[in-house]
Design a protein around this nucleic acid. Structure first.
Length: 551
RNA sequence: CGGGGCGUAGCUCAGCCUGGUAGAGCGCUCGGUUUGGGACCGAGAGGUCGCCGGUUCAGAUCCGGCCGCCCCGACCA
């Protein structure tokens, strides 16, 4: 089909929007793909919607290929379904005031409501999906389409009779997702997002390296390890220890309150010091967390390691529990629980002495204090791969997909059971699989752009070919567009009354994969310029040859 | 929710400190010259300076409150 730019709503901007930071945010707004309505609220404009629909179609085809059945569940949802599962207390849920409805963040409750019609193991497995609006009262939307409060999500739900089936469904979806991202030309890695805890539940994130995003992808240079930075098990370097002591020795360290200044003062390796962070549990007890001096404590890992809702201790609590203040805390002589990072199992470290201005050398776990060990450190640049010891790369990434095994979490409270072969009534075992096409769009732009604009992969480009019409060459441009359209391509025909430079700039910005230019030269030789947006390669082709060359 | 920043024409911004007739560039409309990488000349249209209140003869400007948006952090099935 041919689409005439002169008649389209294609508002491109010359300048970056003032409030944009992320490349995808800038380019999608400048190119007229999206416009902001409020914080985290975006209209996808006609041009952007063409891309969105192409991403959707790829997702649809791959979901159908693994037996997915498309349906449509309503946005407006009875709150009672969410009361049944306890998720009603989720703070991000929008409630519709003075009604018994909510605007849900996802559809597990609703889909499980329907799964109650499944009676027998003979009907399993099932895989259902829809593309539907999700509303989430995000505390902080950001980065254009990267994090929003309302968006269309493809969410799929599987139901199985046993763990083996769950695993098959999960893996089928994982493979489908890999194909989806490959077809969209998004470089994405599936990484374990959470493992082995909470009753066998697990989930996998798909992370796309990007110029901006909210996740950190940790990846081994040899390709045998990839993880979300939040949970990556990276191996830190081995410290250079000073000479071993038979028991801890006090050393006076006036005014030394940081590990860096401590290491400098003593002339030792920063990695041979330890850092203490006290937290207070709901019952008022103080727990001391210990990591190596060159590491950062992961608060997320720490709070995961302590049951209940803990928080950093106040100065008063610290003084009461340790008899010293912030910079001089240590595990020796502390009566409460100590949680130490795994790195502290071996070796002797310098730690605070619980006296202001004094530290202890030669402090050894197991001998001088008895900690509980846990992984508490944040992985960092320079760490090695836990599989092969290779160098780890750290990249900012966008979470483009998330697949989740939730077991009977929803089926039990909602009473979605089936009769198994053995005559037993059992809860259905479920999984959910989410992709946001809008976020995928943003990730594609993050990965496919240059100084002039977007370079869409062919599979998701808003139009296949952008035909630039220069003055005098109107008829040959029409002819070229006709040949391309006859070959089954969607053609954006830029017939606007603008200068060549502006049309070229818009073509680069909008980023259709192929640009065809018809100008005065074309009148002489009947040929047009065909330029590849991504590589910049240009060739001159006869109009009649266009279809076969660019299809 | 904590920290920082911003709000003036469709867009990007200046003016505010030091109160006195609201500006520039781009875009838009009309006319003309141009036309293979964001041209030029001329004439125009376009603004309750985020909102409310206060101080003042006088508020875009000073003071107070509120709202909105962006960035960092917390949070993120």
């Amino acid at each position: 089909m041919i689409f005439r730019a002169s008649q389209l709503f294609l508002p491109t901007l010359r300048d970056d929007p003032a409030d944009a930071e992320a490349v995808s945010h800038k380019l999608l707004v400048r190119g007229g793909f999206i416009r902001q309505v409020g914080a985290g609220l975006w209209t996808i404009m006609p041009l952007g919607w063409r891309v969105h629909r192409k991403v959707e179609q790829i997702v649809r085809e791959e979901m159908d290929a693994i037996g997915g059945q498309e349906m449509l569940m309503p946005v407006l949802t009875p709150a009672e379904l969410w009361e049944a599962t306890g998720r009603i207390k989720t703070p991000e849920i929008f409630r519709v005031v003075d009604t018994p409805y909510i605007l849900p963040m996802t559809h597990e409750e609703t889909v499980t409501f329907h799964a109650r019609e499944i009676q027998s193991y003979k009907q399993l497995p099932q895989l259902w999906y829809h593309f539907q609006t999700k509303d989430r009262n995000e505390p902080r939307p950001r980065g254009g389409l990267l994090r929003v409060r309302e968006f269309v999500m493809k969410d799929a739900y599987s139901f199985d009779r046993d763990e083996e089936g769950v695993k098959r469904s999960f893996e089928a979806n994982r493979e489908a997702y890999k194909k989806i991202f490959a077809r969209c030309e998004v470089e994405a890695y599936d990484v374990v997002a959470e493992s082995g805890i909470m009753g066998g539940k697990f989930s996998v994130d798909f992370l796309a390296p990007s110029g901006s995003g909210e996740n950190v992808l940790v990846r081994c240079e040899n390709g045998d390890y990839a993880a979300d930075g939040d949970i990556a098990e990276a191996v830190p370097r081995v410290p250079t220890f000073p000479e071993t002591l038979v028991s801890p020795e006090e050393v006076v360290t006036p005014g030394v309150t940081t590990c860096e200044s401590l290491a400098g003062f003593l002339g030792i390796d920063l990695a041979a010091t330890s850092k203490a962070m006290p937290v207070t549990r709901p019952d008022g007890s103080v727990v001391l967390a210990l990591v190596r001096g060159d590491d950062r404590l992961s608060e997320m890992k720490l709070y995961d390691a302590i049951p209940g809702e803990s928080r950093p201790s106040t100065d008063d609590e610290i003084r009461a529990a340790f008899g010293a203040s912030g910079g001089s805390l240590g595990p020796v002589g502390f009566s409460g629980e100590v949680i130490a990072d795994e790195t502290l199992r071996e070796g002797q470290y310098v730690a605070g002495a619980n006296k202001d201005g004094v530290h202890l050398r030669g402090v050894q776990a197991g001998r001088d204090f008895t900690p509980r060990f846990a992984d508490l450190r944040e992985p960092k640049q320079g760490d090695r791969c836990p599989v092969c010891g290779g160098a780890l790369q750290f990249q900012i990434a966008v979470e483009v997909g998330h697949i989740f095994n939730f077991g009977s979490f929803y089926a039990k409270p909602l009473g979605a059971t089936f009769l198994d072969e053995d005559g037993q009534e059992k809860p259905l075992l479920g999984g959910s699989y989410g992709i946001g096409p809008g976020r995928v769009m943003a990730a594609i732009v993050e990965q496919h752009n240059d100084g002039n604009g977007i370079a869409w992969p062919r599979s998701v480009a808003p139009y296949d070919v952008h035909v630039v019409v220069l003055p005098g060459a109107e008829s040959i441009a029409e002819e070229a567009a006709g040949v391309l359209a006859a070959a089954g391509l969607d053609v954006l025909l830029d017939d606007r009354d603008l200068r060549a430079g502006e049309k070229f700039a818009d073509a680069d910005l909008i980023g259709c994969p192929v640009r065809v230019t018809a100008g005065k030269k074309s009148l002489e030789d009947g040929k047009v310029d065909v330029r590849d947006r991504a590589t910049g390669e240009e060739k001159r082709l006869a109009v009649a040859d266009l279809g076969k060359e660019t299809a």
